[in-house]
C-alpha cells in the first residue's frame, strides 16, 4: 500500500431518468440500498445530527456516521467511518447532490471528501466500488433490476 497521503476529493456523477424523490428514496431506504449497495441496508431517522449506518447482510455494522445535512430531495451530507475499525482511519465526508438536469432526468453527484489526509491506497476501494454502486442505483431505478456484481473485498489488512 502506498504511504502517500492525499486530501484529493473523489467526485462521481450519474444521470438517472427518474424524479429526484425516487433517487432520494433509493439513497435513504434500506429496501433499495440492499439491492445496489453490495447488500448493505441503510438505517437512520435522517435528522440532522442523527446517527446513520450501513449494515452488512450478516447483521454487522459496516459504515457508521452522522447526518450532517439532510435536505430532501436535494442534498444529503454524511460523515463516514468504518465501523469495524474504529479510529483506525480518518473520517471522510460523503455528499450526495440531486439536481434536475433536464426534463425527467436527474443528475446525481457523489462527492467523497477527506478533511484529514488519507493514504492513497485506501482510496482504491472507493474508486472501484462507487462506480458499481452508482451504476447499480441507476439500473435499479430505471429498469427495476440491480446489477448482480460480487462485493469487492477491501485490502487484506483492512478486512473485518
Amino acid at each position: 500500500m502506498s504511504s502517500d497521503l492525499t486530501t484529493e476529493d473523489t467526485i462521481y456523477v450519474t444521470y438517472i431518468a427518474v424524479a429526484p424523490e425516487q433517487v432520494w428514496r433509493a439513497l435513504t431506504e434500506s429496501q433499495f440500498t440492499a439491492r445496489y449497495f453490495f447488500g448493505r441496508s441503510v438505517e437512520s431517522d435522517w435528522k440532522q445530527g442523527s446517527k446513520w449506518l450501513l449494515r452488512m447482510p450478516d447483521g454487522r455494522e459496516d459504515i457508521v456516521g452522522v447526518v450532517r445535512e439532510c435536505d430532501p430531495p436535494r442534498r444529503l451530507v454524511l460523515t463516514w467511518n468504518i465501523a469495524w475499525a474504529p479510529g483506525q482511519f480518518p473520517e471522510c465526508v460523503v455528499t450526495y447532490d440531486i439536481e434536475q438536469a433536464f426534463d425527467g432526468v436527474v443528475r446525481l453527484t457523489m462527492t467523497e471528501a477527506h478533511p484529514t489526509p488519507i493514504a492513497k491506497g485506501l482510496l482504491e476501494g472507493g474508486r472501484k466500488g462507487w462506480p458499481m454502486i452508482l451504476s447499480g442505483l441507476k439500473s435499479l431505478l430505471e429498469t427495476g433490476n440491480a446489477l448482480n456484481v460480487p462485493t469487492p473485498m477491501p485490502p487484506k489488512e483492512l478486512q473485518p
Binding site: D9, Y12, T14, L134, S135
Partner: peptide, 20 residues
C-alpha cells in the same frame, strides 16, 4: 475530476457477473 461511472455502465452492458 475523472468520472468513471459511464465506463462502468458500458462494461455492465456487455460483461456479466460470470465473465467478471
Amino acid at each position: 475530476f475523472i468520472n468513471p461511472v459511464p465506463i462502468n455502465e458500458i462494461a455492465e452492458r456487455w460483461i456479466g457477473k460470470f465473465e467478471r
